[in-house]
Amino acid sequence: MAVQISPSILSADFARLAEAAAAVPNADWLHVDVMDNHFVPNLTLGLPVVESLLKATSLPLDCHLMIEDPDRWAPAYAEAGAGSVTIHAEAAKAPVRTLREIRAAGARAGLALNPATPVEPYEDLLGEIDMLLLMTVEPGFGGQRFLDMVLPKIRRSRELIDAHGGRLWLQVDGGVSEHTIERCAEAGADVFVAGNAVYGADDPAHAVDVLRSVAGKIGPAGENA
C-alpha cells in the first residue's frame, strides 16, 4: 500500500480552518476529529463545520467520529460529502448496519479501536470496512505521547488484513511524528494521522513531506525499502 498522510485539524487554529487545509495541499486527506464530550472528554466540532470545510478545500475529509451514538450520526457525514467516515467499535450498537449505510452514501467506511480494545473480536467485520483505525493514544486530546504498547496490535491487524486479501487500509492516530512513524510503518500501518507534527511545524506542507519520506522507507512487508 502507498503511504498516505492525513493531517489532523484538531491541532490547527479552529478560527482559521480553511487556511489550515490550504497549508497542506500535498496531504492525501484532511483528518477531522468529531468529539461530543460524552464518548471522549472533549468537545470539538460537528456536522455544520464539516459541511463548511467541504466547501473550503479540495482535500477529501477523513472524519473520525469519537461520539456516543455513531449509528445515528455517521451516515449524515457521508451524505454531506466526507470521503471517509470512521466509527468506534466501542460506541456502535449496530456497526454492520452503520458501516453499510456509510458505504451506501458514497464514503469509505472505517472502524476505530481504542488502545486497550483487541482487534481479534472484530475480524468478522473486516469485510464491512475499507479502513481499520488503531488509536495509538487514548482518544480525546491532541499532543499526547505515542503508546508503543499498540505496536503489536498493529502487527496483528496487518496479519489479519493480509489474510483477508490485504485490501483494507490500516490507519494509526495519535502521537505520530517523524520519530514514531517509522515504527508504525514497520508494524504494517499505511495511513498516518498527524496533528502537532504537521500543524506545530513552521511549514506544515514540508512536515507532510518529511513524514511521507520517513514512512516510505519501509517496504510493504515491513522491510526497509
Score class of each variant (00 low, 15 high):
20 A>R: 08
45 L>W: 10
164 H>G: 11
14 F>K: 06
55 K>A: 01
78 A>F: 09
43 L>V: 04
112 A>M: 06
114 N>W: 12
64 H>G: 01
221 A>W: 08
115 P>V: 02
42 N>V: 00
221 A>M: 11
65 L>M: 01
64 H>I: 04
2 A>F: 11
59 L>V: 05
80 A>L: 14
113 L>Q: 10
173 D>R: 03
101 E>G: 03
218 I>G: 00
182 E>R: 15
202 D>W: 10
111 L>C: 07
61 L>R: 03
61 L>P: 04
99 L>N: 06
167 R>V: 01
150 V>A: 04
100 R>W: 05
113 L>N: 08
64 H>P: 06
8 S>D: 11
204 P>W: 09
74 A>F: 03
5 I>R: 14
182 E>Y: 15
3 V>H: 04
170 L>D: 07
145 R>W: 02
108 R>W: 00
68 E>P: 04
85 V>T: 08
205 A>D: 15
73 W>L: 15
1 M>E: 02
181 I>D: 09
156 R>H: 07
177 S>K: 10
204 P>K: 09
60 P>H: 07
79 E>P: 11
89 A>Y: 13
180 T>P: 10
215 A>H: 03
16 R>E: 14
188 G>M: 14
57 T>W: 00
225 A>H: 13
91 A>M: 11
155 R>I: 01
217 K>H: 11
166 G>N: 07
157 S>L: 02
118 P>L: 12
86 T>S: 00
48 P>W: 11
32 V>E: 06
102 I>Q: 03
95 P>E: 10
35 M>K: 07
97 R>W: 02
103 R>P: 02
165 G>P: 09
215 A>P: 05
184 C>Y: 15
113 L>D: 05
195 G>W: 08
109 A>T: 10
186 E>R: 15
186 E>P: 02
105 A>N: 02
154 I>A: 05
51 E>G: 01
57 T>S: 07
132 L>I: 07
121 P>M: 09
41 P>Y: 01
101 E>Q: 15
211 L>P: 11
212 R>S: 09
224 N>D: 12
148 D>F: 09
147 L>C: 03
196 N>E: 13
98 T>D: 10
182 E>W: 14
165 G>D: 10
44 T>F: 11
145 R>K: 15
65 L>C: 03
125 L>A: 13
128 E>H: 11
122 Y>P: 12
188 G>T: 14
80 A>M: 14
224 N>P: 05
138 E>K: 15
151 L>W: 11
27 A>P: 10
66 M>R: 06
74 A>L: 08
35 M>A: 13
6 S>R: 07
63 C>W: 00
167 R>A: 06
121 P>F: 10
41 P>D: 05
187 A>Q: 12
166 G>A: 09
145 R>L: 06
104 A>R: 08
167 R>F: 02
82 A>K: 12
194 A>L: 05
225 A>K: 11
90 E>G: 12
162 D>F: 00
113 L>S: 07
170 L>T: 07
150 V>M: 13
220 P>R: 06
180 T>E: 05
213 S>C: 08
35 M>Y: 12
63 C>P: 02
194 A>T: 03
159 E>W: 04
110 G>I: 06
67 I>E: 00
161 I>K: 03
224 N>M: 14
179 H>K: 13
212 R>D: 08
31 H>E: 06
219 G>D: 01
187 A>M: 13
217 K>Q: 15
72 R>I: 06
178 E>L: 04
87 I>N: 05
61 L>E: 05
